[in-house]
Each structure stands twice: as C-alpha cells, then as structure tokens.
Amino acid sequence: MDAAVIDDVFSPQEEIELDLLLEAIWRHYQYDFRGYARGSLHRRMERACQRFGCESLSQLQHRLLRDPAMFAELMGFLTIQVSEMFRDPAYFRALREKVVPHLRTWPSLKVWIAGCANGEEFYSLAILFREEGLEDRTIFYCTDISPAALAKAEAGIFDLERIAQFTDNHRQSGGRSSLSDYYTAAYGGAVFDKSLRARAVFAEHSLATDQVFAEAQLVSSRNVLIYFDRTLQDRALGLFGESLVRGGFLGLGARETLRFSRYSEAFSDFEAGERIYRRNTAELQATADA
C-alpha cells in the first residue's frame, strides 16, 4: 500500500519542522496526523504556508498554537475531501450484484463508512441499499476526522455541475432508477432527499486514535489508506477487522490492498479486482501477533 503514495525527498530541517508541527497539533488540538504519509503532508503543508502567508512550517506552528480559528481552516489542508458519488462504478456494481445477496441473509445490517468526507460515498450506498430493498433494515455509520466535512455530508448539498458525472456513475453502477429521483435542484445546488439520512449517524472518528464502536456487516473505506503510512494502515485495517462480523465485507479503494498488511490472513479475496474482501474465521489478534 505504501507504493500508492510516493514520498518526495525533503531536507532534514524540513522533516524536523514537520515532526514538530504534527506533534504540536496532536498535543494542543488532539488530532493525530503523525502516521500520515509524509510526502503528501509536506505538499499540503506547503500549500497551507502559502495560504496563511507563512515562510516556514515553524512559523505556521507558532501561529496555529495561538489561533484555534486558523486550525479549523488548516483541517481543510490536513484532510483530503475529494470524492464523487458512485466513484468507480464497477465497485458499486460488484456490491449490488455480488455482496447484496449475502447481506440479504442478515435480519439487520450495520454499514460503517470510514472517512466519509463530504458524504458522496454515504449517499451512493444509501441509494444503492434503497434500490435493493435493504434500506429499512440498515443503519449507516458515517465517520470522518473533519467536523466541517461531516457537516457537509449531513447537509447533503452538492454543486449542480457535479450531478452529470454522478448520474453517469450511478447508471454504470447498475442503478435501478434515475438519480434525479433522489434530489431537488435549489439555490444552485442539488439537495439530496433527507429521507436518505433517516438511518444515518454522522460522527467524528479518527482511525489514528479512536477504537471500534459498532459491529458491522459492511465496512467501506475507500481512498483513505493511501494517505497513511504502513503502521497507520495496519491500525486502520485492524479496526475494520474488529468491527466486521465473521463473513462481513470490507471495501477498499482501487489503489489499496490488504496484501502487505499484518491482518491479511483475517480476510479472503471476494472480488479482488474491485478490492472487496470478506472477513474469514481467522482470529484477528492471533493474526496481528504472528
């Protein structure tokens, strides 16, 4: 998984400054980004320095410790909130055609969307579950480290210019209706039906520091692990494994894999081409300690 994000080479001074900045954020604001991929963080913090008029990461750190409002804006640089509805339609088609028949066998369902960003992944799954007749028996747990992203996800409003791509993705994913059935155009945006959120819980959760909070039949966490280093990737995968019931499903992003994880033996390939795995009967702790 590390190969998904290739770190650039930075000077020892730049590395020290980044270490100190991340440590300061953790100790002062209790957000832990110390296990995020370094190259990506360096590039985002360089953009943050330009935004805030700071000549160095040390100056950025100095200002952050004295200005909580500035940190709230910095979260937009520290976290990546880029997604689209039904992104990688083949993944959602595989869920619809291959995973849903298994999900039907459970009388009630819990779905954990870890790193839900602005809500695109959640609304995609909520629509898919409604179309497949599973919505009424499902609770969706939508988590992210960013309070601002969660607020956008709960509002369910997206720019109208994005809807054409969302619509095409939905069609390619095997959608059984028109995407327009689920939103109303208003105020320059597409407002998704609030009934889609009736069975959703939105909550802050950090894969770096928090623990499992629910047992789930499906965990969908796509294009999140690519921003973590190997240690944090393993921690996140351990949480997913602990959350999943035996026989539950894990969906990852197109550039993510379980192959190099210490928890790989706890999962079996289900639709490997679409990065969908199934929790098997291996003991997770035994696998972790191997």
Rank of each mutant, 00 (worst) to 15 (best):
N280I: 09
Q61L: 15
A114P: 02
S221C: 15
R93E: 13
A3K: 11
D193K: 09
H205C: 07
I163K: 01
S146P: 06
L239C: 13
H170G: 01
E73V: 14
N118T: 15
Y263K: 00
L284R: 07
E256R: 06
L244Q: 05
F192C: 02
S146I: 10
V9T: 14
S83N: 11
A72Y: 07
L237I: 15
D193G: 02
R171K: 12
A282W: 01
N169T: 01
G53F: 03
F249M: 11
A254Y: 07
D159N: 05
Q50L: 15
L57W: 08
A24T: 02
L284H: 06
K98G: 12
R262M: 12
S243D: 06
E97K: 08
F122Q: 02
Q165T: 14
E17T: 04
R259T: 08
R27N: 10
L250R: 12
R87L: 10
D210K: 01
A190L: 06
G35S: 08
A282T: 07
R66M: 11
A3E: 11
Q217Y: 00
A164S: 14
I163T: 01
H205T: 01
A185F: 02
A117N: 09
I6W: 02
D210H: 13
G189Y: 03
E120F: 01
I145W: 03
R235I: 11
R34A: 06
I226V: 14
E46A: 15
Q30N: 13
A290C: 03
E46W: 08
A186G: 07
F192Y: 09
A186C: 09
S268L: 05
L103Q: 06
L95F: 02
I226M: 15
A236F: 09
L78M: 15
A155Y: 05
L65N: 02
I226W: 09
E120R: 04
I139Q: 10
A151C: 05
F270I: 01
R199N: 13
R27T: 10
Q30Y: 07
R278D: 03
L207W: 00
F140E: 04
F166C: 03
R197S: 10
H62N: 11
Y187C: 10
L22Q: 09
V212E: 09
G175Q: 01
S178H: 11
A164K: 12
G53E: 10
I145R: 00
P68C: 06
E55Y: 05
S195N: 09
S221H: 03
T105Y: 03
Q285H: 11
G35A: 01
R130N: 04
A149F: 01
P89F: 09
V219T: 12
R104T: 12
G133A: 07
A203G: 12
L65M: 11
L150K: 04
S180I: 01
